[in-house]
């Protein structure tokens, strides 16, 4: 039963961050490959504030501010670069932020991570966490669903299809894309405020490139831009990810096998969605 609660908690904790990122990559087709860079800084800002002030409110606010700052940096880069260049540079920013975290030993304890992260008083058991994060996830799904169908969602879709045409009919690209990054930052704040508390540990290895591939895989498999599709694929792929540990393999093989399996799933998802992932521009 505990394992079921654990799976529900992981799915629910990741949901706001993935749904937020879905607005950037899935709906907006913005090649922002650094969401884990945002998550990394959010989590560290949040946990370090918690450690030094013992205040959960301040910790959340610090996480939100950090997430917004890094997201706005990515938004600025997206306006300066072509789509594929942004993809590579956002990965580089992620790598750079990781280097800063790993080398600022005095502040972050480097590769050791920060153990003993305090939990909120009402979140002491796994089931508490599952219920609380589940409620947050449901709220995130509802909010994302309505945002997706709002004028903002339509503007984002129009820009994704052809930004010149969209701008010609009055859609402000800078404004719309900046809001997409802000939504992703808010989602990331909720996820990364809860995740270190759930583990009672903040470790940089949870924010590596491979974790980002999970995000991409979820969005591609769940139909980019679709809130319900991405929510469903988050649940299914998280179950797949966590179930691998039950396969009778030597411990040293589980990591590489998981990498290969995720790579294969991502490739299969792209093959399946090759016509809809980047739909051709409509022409008159």
């Amino acid at each position: 039963m505990n394992f079921a609660w654990h799976i529900i908690t992981l799915i629910a904790i990741q949901m706001p961050a993935i749904l937020g990122y879905n607005f950037v990559f899935g709906k907006g087709k913005i090649f922002h490959f650094g969401p884990l860079g945002v998550s990394l800084i959010t989590a560290y800002a949040s946990v370090l504030t918690l450690v030094h002030t013992q205040s959960f409110v301040l910790s959340f606010v610090a996480g939100l501010c950090a997430a917004l700052l890094v997201s706005l940096l990515f938004a600025w880069l997206s306006f300066r670069l072509e789509a594929d260049g942004l993809g590579v540079i956002s990965l580089a920013v992620h790598l750079g932020l990781m280097a800063v975290v790993l080398n600022s030993n005095v502040l972050t304890r480097g590769a050791l991570g920060i153990p003993g992260v305090k939990r909120m008083a009402f979140l002491q058991s796994v089931s508490d966490f599952a219920i609380f994060s589940g409620v947050i996830a449901v709220i995130a799904i509802i909010a994302a669903y309505f945002l997706n169908r709002s004028a903002f969602g339509r503007r984002l879709s129009a820009l994704a299809e052809h930004n010149w045409y969209a701008e010609a009919v009055g859609v402000n690209r800078r404004h719309t894309h900046t809001w997409a990054f802000v939504i992703a930052a808010i989602g990331s704040t909720f996820s990364n405020f809860l995740f270190p508390q759930y583990l009672t540990l903040l470790h940089p290895s949870d924010y590596q490139f491979h974790s980002f591939v999970f995000y991409i895989m979820v969005i591609v498999a769940g139909n980019p831009g679709s809130v319900l599709g991405v929510a469903t694929s988050t649940a299914l792929l998280m179950i797949l990810k966590e179930s691998i540990r039950f396969i009778a393999l030597p411990a040293a093989m589980i990591g590489p096998v998981r990498l290969m399996l995720f790579g294969a799933v991502l490739f299969a998802a792209v093959c399946w969605r090759r016509d809809t992932l980047f739909p051709p521009k409509r022409e008159v």
Partner: peptide
Amino acid sequence: RKHRFLPLVTTIAWSMILDGLILL
């Protein structure tokens, strides 16, 4: 040919598979 950005995602998938193979 379908979209010039698709290989960006497919080669990320391939890099994961190769990473796993190299580790194994």
